[in-house]
């Protein structure tokens, strides 16, 4: 055997050994690497960690369940509240129109009272308002200034008509919301407002309209003597 052959066989052996060593080392490193941040921890530590994780998850889940119940309570109460709010808003709209705090619109009539001789009195206008109320008027205003509500006061001072303190001058224009036909019938009914005004030398014109706007407002002051009852 030559020196060359001997050298080769020796190199071969070394190569094989190195390969095995490399394989073993690589296998070891791979296994070690898998552990990652848990490399230094014993199996018992890991099991304890797993247990405490499970316990923490359970606690958190319980909290979540509780909060979900709270939320569903909130949701159903907010649904109830929304229904109540809707009802309250409808009521507010109706009361606002009745009390005169909201501008209103709807079908109705515009009644124009001319009074060339200045003979039409506050009482005549009040009578006209009563006729309109009797015919189902739901909102009334005079001369786009005076909103007529339950407590509206009609006063005559020195020949001037004052409605809730508003000085009104003829022609008196009454806007009334309601059934336009019924309202106009009531005004021109024999013995009604039209007759009375013509007797006083004035004239009444009624115009039915699909939309009449009652835009003036009556401020609501808190009552001084009337208190809500406990019912």
């Amino acid at each position: 055997m030559s020196d060359d052959a001997k050298r080769r066989s020796a190199q071969l052996v070394v190569a094989v050994l190195l390969a095995l060593l490399g394989f073993a080392a690589a296998a070891q490193i791979r296994l070690t690497h898998q552990d990652g941040s848990y490399a230094g921890q014993r199996r018992e530590d890991l099991i304890e960690l797993l247990d405490s994780l499970a316990a923490a998850a359970e606690r958190t889940q319980k909290q979540i369940d509780e909060l979900e119940r709270t939320r569903s309570d909130l949701l159903s109460s907010s649904e109830r509240r929304e229904a109540a709010v809707e009802a309250a808003n409808e009521q507010l709209a109706v009361l606002g129109i009745l009390a005169g705090t909201l501008p209103a619109e709807g079908p109705g009539v515009t009644v124009t009272i001319t009074d060339p001789s200045g003979a039409v009195t506050a009482a005549s206008i009040l009578n006209g308002v009563e006729e309109l109320r009797d015919a189902g008027a739901e909102a009334i205003e005079i001369n786009d200034r005076a909103r007529v509500v339950a407590s509206t006061a009609f006063v005559e001072r020195d020949g001037v008509v004052l409605v809730d303190g508003h000085e009104l001058r003829p022609p008196y224009v009454l806007d009334a919301i309601g059934s336009s036909h019924t309202l106009s019938e009531a005004v021109i009914f024999p013995g009604g407002l039209a007759d009375e005004v013509s007797r006083l030398g004035g004239e009444v014109a009624v115009e039915e309209a699909a939309v009449v706007e009652v835009g003036s407002l009556h401020p609501v002051d808190p009552p001084e003597y009337a208190q809500p009852t406990d019912e």
């Binding site: 009521q91 009361l95 606002g96 705090t101 609501v220 009552p223 809500p228 009852t229």
Partner: peptide, 21 residues
């Protein structure tokens, strides 16, 4: 809203009221 409703209803005449007079 409840306060508003109460005032409005008293003023509109739809709520019961009590007082001197």
């Amino acid at each position: 809203r409840t306060d508003d409703l109460q005032h409005l209803a008293m003023s509109a005449g739809t709520a019961a009221v009590t007082g001197p007079g």
